[in-house]
Nucleic acid binder design. Structure first.
Length: 204
DNA sequence: CCACGGATTGGCT
DNA sequence: GCCAATCCGTGGA
């Protein structure tokens, strides 16, 4: 197997930059979770940005609560929330203390630990090849495949459990931009970013 | 204490 | 394409 995991771990200085810059730069990077014997990893192919100051769709908008406290920390931590009584979604906290800025990981392309991801998602083997593209093609799916729950909210991304590895920067012309998905407020902000034509996107 | 709605998903029409 | 499932965070009484 190609050694996807030899690259260097992203440091706090990467995360503590401006929200949208971090969001775009996260595309193509390798999201990693150590899981006992397994190393689960995937290439980040779709993200969305959320901002506490003026973005009404953000959980951090207007107020800090116990749940969203981690979003107001300095960049470089994980924020995980539970929604619709069924799904977890994970975010990368960015920027400076007090900003309430974070990037939602919406989809990844599986790289290593794929059999474990399949087990976590479906509890069985794949029925067909097509199901590979249903493994991590959404924020809830990705958390399920990586077995990430709100117990992981607050994890330090410069630690050894969950982190992101550097990679070559994705070219601007390869990055698609759109409005965010599934929200009802601040719907017009063009803050969804994705790698064009990647088969693991949550939608085209 | 109670009511309400959600940064989604998958199944059914 | 439409919509129910399902639990918890949040805010108001």
């Amino acid at each position: 197997m190609k050694n996807y995991l030899s690259a260097r771990k992203l440091r706090k200085s990467f995360y503590q930059r401006e929200l949208v810059d971090v969001a775009r730069c996260l595309l193509g990077k390798t999201f990693v979770k150590k899981d006992g014997e397994n190393i689960l990893s995937g290439k980040i192919v779709e993200v969305e940005a959320y901002h506490g100051d003026f973005d009404e769709a953000a959980h951090s908008f207007g107020r800090m609560t116990k749940r969203t406290e981690i979003m107001f920390n300095t960049g470089g931590y994980l924020y995980v929330y539970f929604t619709y009584g069924a799904h977890h979604c994970c975010n990368v906290v960015t920027g400076k203390a007090g900003q309430g800025t974070a990037v939602l990981i919406r989809a990844v392309e599986p790289l290593t630990g794929i059999n474990k991801m399949i087990k976590n998602r479906f509890g069985r083997k794949l029925k067909n090849e097509k199901e590979m593209f249903n493994l991590t093609s959404g924020p809830g799916k990705t958390c399920q495949a990586f077995a990430i729950t709100r117990n992981h909210s607050g994890v330090d991304l410069t630690g050894n459990d969950i982190f992101i590895l550097n990679s070559k920067k994705i070219k601007s012309k390869e990055i698609g931009v759109s409005k965010r998905i599934g929200i009802t407020k601040s719907v017009d902000l063009p803050w969804r970013f994705f790698i064009k034509d990647n088969p693991y996107l949550s939608r085209k």
